[in-house]
């Protein structure tokens, strides 16, 4: 019974999120009017998490390099570690790590901000002065996130490859020349939709979708918050949890779409 109720609640939430997403798209013509606010949101989203992304992806690259390097070494193939790290970072770990960090930091902050507005009558106030909430609050935040996620992902990819190179040299005895040459070479493969390296644009496309998913879920939870500080806490928790679940599920489908044979 509880499970059943959980699903109903989930479906209702999903419906609200999809509706919100469509409304956000309908508000894209308001972008010029909101540009100042969008850029301040962009700055906020980027500036506050860049150092986290750099640190985490650097260490991710190190771990990746070490784990795969040791297995490859068993087969005398440690020279290929650069390829593995570069492809894995660009395709998966870069966008994914960035998305998780964004969900936990910017996403939770969005839910808390809008949630606080919802429980303190600020949203009602906007309603009575005929301010369009989606255009005023949601669209700029969603757009900022969609633009910011791929930029951060580029940093994450780069740092991951650098971190991997560091371990390759110090622990696996793979020279940095060889490492970087093979890493860069492996990312050259063109194909699919665009005439740029597929692994790179695939990863960036992923990260834009993740950015949209996180911001929509977080804003939706914030707007739906009810009942004081407790409600804001609930909204924030749900936003982060659902964002992470959604990222993992959506990730599979984009990967399938991009790399299906």
């Amino acid at each position: 019974m509880a499970l059943f109720r959980g699903f109903i609640e989930f479906a209702r939430g999903l419906g609200f999120q999809v509706g919100l997403f469509l409304q956000v798209i309908a508000r894209f013509p308001h972008i010029p009017k909101r540009r100042a606010f969008i850029s301040s949101q962009l700055y906020g989203a980027g500036n506050k998490v860049l150092h986290v992304v750099l640190l985490v992806s650097f260490v991710m690259g190190m771990v990746l390099s070490l784990q795969t390097g040791l297995v490859l070494a068993d087969y005398g193939q440690q020279d290929k570690v650069g390829i593995v790290v570069a492809v894995t970072m660009a395709r998966e770990m870069g966008p994914f790590t960035t998305a998780i960090i964004l969900a936990a930091t910017v996403g939770s902050a969005l839910a808390a901000e809008l949630g606080t507005m919802a429980v303190s009558e600020e949203l009602s106030a906007l309603e009575v002065i005929s301010v369009d909430k989606v255009s005023f609050l949601v669209m700029p935040r969603v757009l900022a996130m969609i633009l910011m996620a791929p930029v951060l992902t580029i940093f994450a990819d780069t740092m991951g490859i650098v971190g991997g190179g560091f371990v390759a040299q110090s622990q696996l005895g793979v020279g940095s020349q060889l490492y970087y040459d093979s890493a860069l070479e492996s990312l050259q493969g063109l194909g699919g939709l665009l005439a740029v390296p597929k692994d790179v644009y695939g990863g960036l496309m992923k990260s834009m979708v993740f950015g949209a998913v996180i911001s929509i879920i977080s804003c939706a939870e914030g707007l739906r918050a009810r009942g004081g500080a407790l409600g804001v806490g609930n909204a924030t928790r749900t936003a982060v949890r659902d964002s992470i679940i959604a990222i993992i599920i959506v990730n599979y489908f984009i990967t399938w779409f991009l790399y299906q044979k």
Binding site: M117, S120, E121, E122, S124, L126, E127, V128, V131, D132
Partner: peptide
């Protein structure tokens, strides 16, 4: 609602906007 004004019991100001921007908000938007 453009022809109506509402004073909330707790003020209900937008907490990330300055006082002047809060007051100007209905004009800025509409």
């Amino acid at each position: 609602r453009k022809r109506m004004g509402y004073l909330f019991q707790e003020g209900a100001l937008i907490n990330w906007m300055s006082v002047a921007d809060n007051v100007a908000l209905p004009l800025m938007e509409n």
